[in-house]
Simulated scan of single mutants.
Amino acid sequence: MFFRNLTLFRFSKAVADDLARLAEVLPDHALRPVGGMEMFTRGFVAPVRGGEDAPLTHAVSHFTLFTVGGQDKMLPASVVNTELQRKVQKITEEEGRPVGGRERKRIKEDLFTELLPRAFVNETRLAGYVDTRGGWLVLDTSSRKAADNALTQLREALGSFPAVPLAPEEGPRVLLTDWLANGTLPVRLQLGDECELRDPASATGAIIRARRQDMHSDEIKEHLRNGKQVFQLGLVFNDRISFVLGEDLVVRKLKFLDAVLDDLGDSHENALAEASASFALLTLELEKLLGFLAECFGLPRPEDA
């Protein structure tokens, strides 16, 4: 249940009111099996495991959990090309003539049609939740493409969902660099043990990645003195959550520390009770973290139109 990455969007209070329809509309957009001649399908699946009739949302307080599922046909180009070469060679040997470009294209299209229904199907899951009080859409991914696809699914289900990417008032790269170079971190933050430094003025795009490294070391300070800036920085919040924050404000390598896990305990009546407890703890901790990031970087909630 615990998320590993966070890609964030914001929405207004008026939009939050419309999200009460999620439980009602998602069943009409549930994931269906990919068809024989389809490359992929997308839709919603139950965020908490259960039978076929398991609900497609799971709500705790003002947080609603959902999961976008996908089925993708895996048909590697190498498989198609190998079969294409075999057929071309057979025609050449049996008919004694070369195979032209147009004919090769037609054969390849026929092969694709023949092989697609037998292709391996890969299933994907992307969890997310909406915080109607705070105006956050939180997606468990560091991929902007995957996040945009999930947002598209929500918009199709709701008819519209004007959630917007983060628009920081404070430059994240400047602030992260200042935190590392001058030790000006806010009270509730500590430096982690990794960072990514880049020289924005370098035509070669020089990149330094440090892991399991003392961020106060002379080596790190020397890179900063030479003009490199922080593009990713490992941080610890309240001694409860560690993560890597990027200059794109995507949270990566999210990890809940022992202080949080101890609060969860291990005595739950069933899977649903365990999922509810985990989700409640997750959202409680992230509500504090997201509020803190909003304060640091200036991430205001959009105003109602």
Rank of each mutant, 00 (worst) to 15 (best):
L137P: 03
P47A: 01
P302T: 08
Q71C: 09
A150G: 02
R32A: 13
A54W: 10
D72L: 12
L261V: 10
L197P: 06
A30N: 07
A157I: 11
L115I: 01
D148N: 11
D239I: 03
P302N: 04
V68W: 11
K228R: 15
N149S: 14
A77I: 03
D53E: 15
E287H: 04
V45T: 15
T184L: 07
F256M: 10
V174F: 13
L75M: 04
P76T: 07
L56H: 09
R21I: 02
C296M: 09
T113Y: 03
A203Y: 10
E170I: 15
D131P: 03
F44T: 07
L185S: 12
I91C: 07
H216L: 11
A163M: 09
A271S: 12
E194S: 15
N238P: 01
P168V: 07
R102C: 01
K73P: 00
L257F: 04
A181P: 07
T113N: 02
A23W: 00
A20S: 14
R106T: 09
A59L: 00
V187K: 14
N149I: 13
E52R: 13
A127I: 05
K221D: 10
N226W: 11
P117R: 00
T64S: 08
N149R: 12
V25R: 00
F292G: 01
K13C: 02
L235M: 01
V45F: 04
L137A: 10
M215C: 09
H58V: 00
G159F: 03
Q85E: 15
S276Q: 13
A167P: 03
L257G: 03
L235D: 07
H62N: 10
N122C: 12
F2P: 11
G35A: 14
D263L: 12
K105M: 12
P117L: 02
K108H: 00
V164C: 06
A46N: 08
L158C: 07
H29T: 04
L282C: 10
A16Y: 02
A23E: 15
L290V: 02
F243L: 15
G43T: 07
K255H: 11
A150T: 15
K145W: 02
L56N: 05
V230Y: 06
V15D: 06
V99L: 06
G134L: 05
T41M: 01
